[in-house]
Every structure is written in structure tokens, then in C-alpha cells.
Write a protein that binds this DNA or RNA. Structure first.
Lengths: 200, 200, 200, 200
DNA sequence: GATGAATGAGCGTTCATTCAT
DNA sequence: AATGAATGAACGCTCATTCAT
């Protein structure tokens, strides 16, 4: 698929190390040489496993999107009630973002100028995640539980909310004197609640 | 305040040009030499007005925070009704972000690796903006209109929501097939609505 | 002869592929890895057949000189008249250069910095080609048909003429608005004619 | 004209050093770093005087073409007799090539793959030199002294001859046991002679 | 008040080559 | 007979920054 697989463990190591360096350095600050130093190999070696920097990051993006999709799916597996499903999606999304800030950074925060160089395949994978939200919203709307006009728009709105929460936390921009768990919980509550149809 | 102020107009020009270049080039793509070329002075000259690149950007961040504060204030000026105030704050915040993506980028999106080098002063200025939300929420809660436990936490939540909306839009991550105005409007509606106390 | 000959067909394939790649890529743009990819073997394999890049090219140079010699010989085979022989040699030389620009490039155009590393053997082979010209000139002079003082010098002169024609054409330096066939023909005519003894 | 002139002597020095390194290293083997080392400055400094490697070489090419033109012109200045003019042009051309092998290398030997990146301006300058030959040939033909059909074609032919002589000598491919002066002289004699109309 | 001159560090990438298997 | 794994050196180039004037 990508440059001959040669030694799978090292390939894995490169991906993992890159991922972790991303937290400290960010995309812009991360160079092939730094990655090489961190894995204890020469910079040239990385090119045995990835055609170039873009491909390395593209691989990480795909992995992240895949992982997120799996976690979202598992989160809703067997859950029938639309609101419970929606809540589960939100929780899974936040959990994913907070537990995998490195993945999150390249997946959703990286500047579009860089992003645009990656194949559309990525975007398709990304949309699949959004669709999970849209489907759940649509189903809830059908059952009269959610107040939704256009499920795709609403899914984007809730995604934006969650994205805001994750990215502020990752960037350590939420005041330290605030209880982060309480913050996250309230964010979920209100996000989910904002879709609830008022039933008198 | 910072490096001998010598010739105020030039200092201003540097800041403005930098800000405008930020839109086109992004932070990573912006170099001192490019700024120099754009203002028609030598690169060295910039160092007469700003100690280094960090300080230049730090100044812009402070300006942005100030500008945002002013716009938020103006938006609520004379508006008494808490919900209308909250809505106005949301609208102003979004408008600021979407009209000044350069400011927004360095203020709220830039990687912490960069940010951490900036003085705490910035964060204080940032908190002042959040406080406007908190105050409005608190006032609404006092009047029984909002359902709020800890106004600082809730302010952070609504800020996160708005931040999500702005940053997805700036990063051009919102599906082009979605009506962006509708998206923004719904985002505001739900965000504000999520604080409304249910009054039967 | 050079590095254990192991599997003759593969050795042959490496040489041929290299030769063909030379046309597209030129010497500078040609790397061992590209050759390896083109023959469908690993880069390491080439080193089983050739000590290093130099030896590979050296082998090609020798082959080229050999091929040129054969073609020159065939061209004059059975031709008795000195002027016709000389003309045939010129034609064969030009034909060889224009039909095998890859060979020609490494044989006669490549920078001496590279060439100097090659064994003198090559130059001996090269001289043999020149000798064909010298012999023909000498014979013509003996018969009073050519005006030649030192046949080796004169052979070098005519070689230089032909080399100029080939290398300008290969390097695409001859104005496109000029009829190249006419150019080549005139070049041969004058070159041959310049040796003709004036017989009134 | 090209990157700010800053310190003219250093700019000159870069050009001269590059020119001389070209003999030893050839175009392909010559790097910005090598040039930098040779002038005793950092590689970065070169970029203060030339936008990039291409511009540096392009400047040299233009200089060379200019210099050649001047020498050709001076050589025929005041010379009326067409054959003497033609001979003078040949002599000047050869002298230029042999005395400035570095200029000659980039002007006429460098691979077209590189050449094509240079502006057409260069080619125009190059054609101007060829035109001097063509004009002289045409004039001689008008006077019935030269046997010329198409002066542009014939000029190309004589240029090819001369180019062959220069490039073989520069590349040190002419047998050392041959008297080079004799070789050059004979080359000129025959080249010029080949245009002479046979007058009985 | 402004700049010309210069640089060391770093970037992504390619290369010929080696060595153990 | 062939290769997978790895590397040091080099490439063209850009960057933020310094310093003397």
C-alpha cells in the first residue's frame, strides 16, 4: 500500500513516535530529523517506510479516522434510544479526542493549507464519522424525540460543539481553576439537551 | 512597553501588514523577511520595533483580545434582557472570528508550543472576555431565566461551542454542501437555547 | 573481467536498461535505485554485477566504443575509393551518434571529472576508432587524392568536426528553423571536401 | 537586475570562483556549498547575491555570450576581405573557448535539461553570435568568393566544426601526442577552406 | 532611524554504498 | 543469487537573528 513494508515493527514505531511528538511540537514544528532522532535511526531510514512526510502524516490521519469511527460505533452498539445514542456518540468523541490528542491534532486541527495536500479519501473517511451523528439525529427526529430540521446541518453543529470542547482542552486553554470533568459533562448535557424536542 | 518605540506609525504598519499576511500565509508560512518585504523596509528594521518574532505575534494577540473585548462590549451595550445579551455575545464572537481569521488563528488556534512562550498577561486579557459571558449568564440565572450552576463553567462551555464553530469554519472543515449561514444560525440558537430555563 | 559474473543475462539487462534510461534521464539524473527499479531487482543486486556506478558506466563506454568500431568497419567494408571510404566513415559516425545518444553522451560528452576515473583501456579503444579515419586519409594521400600532412592530426580534425555536429544536435542547440538533414549533409560534404586535393 | 547588488566585489568574486570551479567539477558536480567554501563565506551568503543556483549560472551564461560577441566583433573590426573575416571569426571563437573553458562549458556544453530552464534571452544572445558568421558568409557569397547556399545553415556547420574542436580540447580528449597548435590551425584552415569557391 | 552584510541551524529529500543474512 | 535494512554525506534552500555602521 505504502512504500514496501520491510520491518513492520519499525514502521509502527515511527508512526507512534511521530504521533507522540505531535503533542509537544505540533505539525509545523515536527521534522523528519526530529522523528528520526526520537526513534534512534537516521532520517533516511524513515524514507524506507514512508515515501515522504506527507505520506507519513496521511497514514496517521487515516488511522485516527478509522479508530474514531470504531470507537463511535462501539459506543452506540446495542443502544436503541436515540438520546442515549446521541449522548454516547458525544462521550465517545470527546473521549477519543482527549485520549488521543496527537491523532486529534492532525485529524482536525492541522491547517487546511497542509490538509489540502492529502487525498480526498481522508475526507470521505471523515464524513463517515459525521454521518453517525446525522443518522442518530434523523432517527430521533423520526420518533419525535429530537427537534431537527436538516440532520446534516445539525450533525455539523453538534460536531462543532464537541470540537470546540476538545480543542480548547487539548490546547490547554480552559482555565485551570475550572473542574474539567464538570466542564466536559456540562458540555455534553447541554449539547444533547439542545436537540431534545420539548414534550409537554 | 516593548523595544524603544521610535516611530509609532511604522510599528503600526508592521502589525497591520503582519496581520494581513497571516490570512494568506498562515502562521507557519509567515517569515520576518516576508513581512519586511511587504512593509518596504529591511528585515532588520522590524527588530527595532519588536524584540523578536514572538513579541511581534504576542502584540498581535493582545490587540486581538482587546478588539474582541471591545466588540463584545459594544454588542451588549444597552441590551438588558439576559437572553438577548447572551445571543448578542455569541453573534459578536462569531462575527469577530469569521471577520478576523488572522487574529483568531494566533489568538486561539495556534499551537501551545508557540503560545506557552507568551506572558500570562495574555491569558488575563483572554479571561476578561470569558467573564462577559459569565456575567451575563449569572445575571440571567439570578432572574430565573437561565439554568446555570457555575457561571464560569457554563461560560467556558458556551465559549467552547462558539470556538468549535469558528475554528471549523476557518479551517474550512464544514462540508461545502452545507449552508454555512444556516449552520451558524442553528449553532447560535441551540447554544443560547441550551441555557434557557424551562418555564412552563 | 569485472565482479563475479554470476548470471550473464541479468548483467546484460542491467546494461541495456541503464543505456535506455540514459536517454530519458541523462547521466546526472540517473541513480542506481532508478536502474534497480527498472530492472525489477533490488539496488543491492546491481553491486553483484558491477563494483560500483563508475564500473557500470565504464562498461557501457567500452561497449559503445566497440559498437562504434564495428559500425565504422562495416561502413567501409568493400569500399575501395578513399573518398567514398572517408564519406562512409563520416556517415557512420554521425549515424551512430544520432541513433545512440546515450552511448554518445557517456562516451564523448561526459565531464572529464567523471571520465578521468576510468581506465586507460577506454582511451585505447577510442583511439582505434580514430585510426580508421587516419588510415583512410593516409591511403587517400598516398594515392594523391587527399591533401594530408599528418594523417593522425587530420583524423583528429575530421573527428572534431563530426563530434561538433553530433553534440550540437544531441544537445538540441541547432536552431529548429534549420533543416537538420540539410545541415548534416552539408557538414559531411564540406568535411570530406576539405581533404580533397585540388586536381585541375 | 538580479538580487540587490549589496557588495559588488563579492558578487564578482562569486561569479569568478564559480566559473573556475566549473572546470574542475562541471555543472552537475558543482554545489552552492562548494562555491561557498571556495569563496570563504557561508552558503547562505550566496543567496544574498543570487536568487538561486539557476540565476547564478544564468548570469555567467549571459556574461559569456556577451564576451564572446565582443571578441568576435573586435576580431573582424576593420577586416574587409570576407575570407579573412571568416578566418578571424574562427580564430576568435577558438581562442575564446580555449581561454575561457569555464564560460564555454556552461554556454555550450551544459545539458539541455538544465539549459531549458534559462530564459530565452540567452538563446537570442547566442544566435547573435551565429549571425556574425552568417553575415560574413553571405557577404562572401555575394562577392562570389564563397560557395554558400543558405548562409544560416552554413554558419551552423562552421559553428559545429569549431564547437567540436573546442569541446574535444576542453574535455582533453585529443591525443596528447598530437601537436595541439597544429591541430587547431589545420582545423581552421580546412573549415575556412571548405567554403572557398573554386576559382579557376 | 535604518540597513547591509552575514550566518548557523535547520528543512525535506536523494544518493551511492555497505553489511548481514 | 539476491535482498532487506540502514546510513552518512550531500543537495538547494529558508529561517530568525546579530552586528557594525
Amino acid at each position: 500500500m505504502s512504500t514496501s513494508a520491510t520491518q513492520p515493527e519499525l514502521r509502527r514505531k515511527i508512526l507512534d513516535v511521530t504521533r507522540h511528538l505531535l503533542i509537544k511540537e505540533g505539525y509545523a514544528g515536527l521534522s523528519m530529523r526530529k522523528i528520526a532522532r526520537a526513534i534512534g535511526y537516521s532520517a533516511t531510514t524513515i524514507y524506507l517506510y514512508f515515501k515522504n512526510k506527507d505520506e507519513l502524516f496521511h497514514t496517521l490521519i487515516l488511522e485516527g479516522l478509522e479508530l474514531l469511527y470504531k470507537q463511535l460505533q462501539e459506543g452506540v452498539d446495542g443502544v436503541e434510544d436515540p438520546e442515549k445514542r446521541l449522548r454516547a456518540l458525544c462521550e465517545q468523541y470527546l473521549m477519543f479526542g482527549l485520549r488521543n490528542p496527537e491523532y486529534y491534532e492532525i485529524m482536525f486541527i492541522m491547517h487546511p493549507e497542509k490538509t489540502s495536500r492529502f487525498p480526498v479519501e481522508d475526507f470521505r473517511k471523515g464524513r463517515r464519522n459525521l454521518q453517525l451523528f446525522a443518522d442518530t439525529l434523523a432517527r430521533g427526529a423520526d420518533q419525535g424525540l429530537f427537534q431537527v430540521e436538516d440532520s446534516r446541518v445539525s450533525a455539523s453543529v453538534i460536531w462543532a460543539y464537541l470540537h470546540g470542547v476538545v480543542s480548547l482542552l487539548i490546547a490547554q486553554r480552559v482555565d485551570v481553576r475550572i473542574n474539567h470533568e464538570q466542564f466536559v459533562e456540562e458540555a455534553i448535557d447541554r449539547a444533547v439537551g439542545s436537540f431534545r424536542a420539548i414534550t409537554v
